[in-house]
């Protein structure tokens, strides 16, 4: 989680976990699978997305700071 790459890798793993829940819930739509996919799955996917946009946002800000210092 130290580097931007590390954050993105974490986001990837979170996404994979969420996707696994989605796929499980449609292939074997039992009570547990469906409830997990519609709760935990959403949380994991949202966390991954938030992490991704955080990385992009901080990258952009950093780039702008560098630009400003150069000028």
């Amino acid at each position: 989680m130290r580097t931007q790459e590390g954050r993105l890798r974490l986001a990837c793993w979170l996404t994979i976990a969420a996707l696994a829940l989605f796929v499980w819930s449609v292939l074997d739509p039992g009570v547990v699978a469906v409830m997990l996919a519609m709760s935990l799955g959403q949380v994991l996917g949202t966390a991954a997305t938030a992490l991704f946009f955080w990385v992009v946002w901080t990258d952009l800000r950093r780039a702008r700071v560098i630009d400003r210092e150069r000028r």
């Binding site: 993105l8 986001a11 990837c12 996404t15 969420a18 996707l19 989605f22 796929v23 819930s25 449609v26 739509p29 469906v34 996919a37 519609m38 799955g41 959403q42 996917g45 991954a48 997305t49 991704f52 946009f53 992009v56 990258d59």
Partner: peptide, 26 residues
């Protein structure tokens, strides 16, 4: 980053949406 945007956000969102409709049905 663009590819990751698709892989972390766009496609999972589409998967979640169809999965949720299916789950709601279940």
């Amino acid at each position: 980053k663009l590819v990751l945007l698709a892989g972390i956000f766009v496609f999972p969102l589409m998967s979640a949406m169809s999965g949720n409709v299916s789950g709601y049905d279940t």
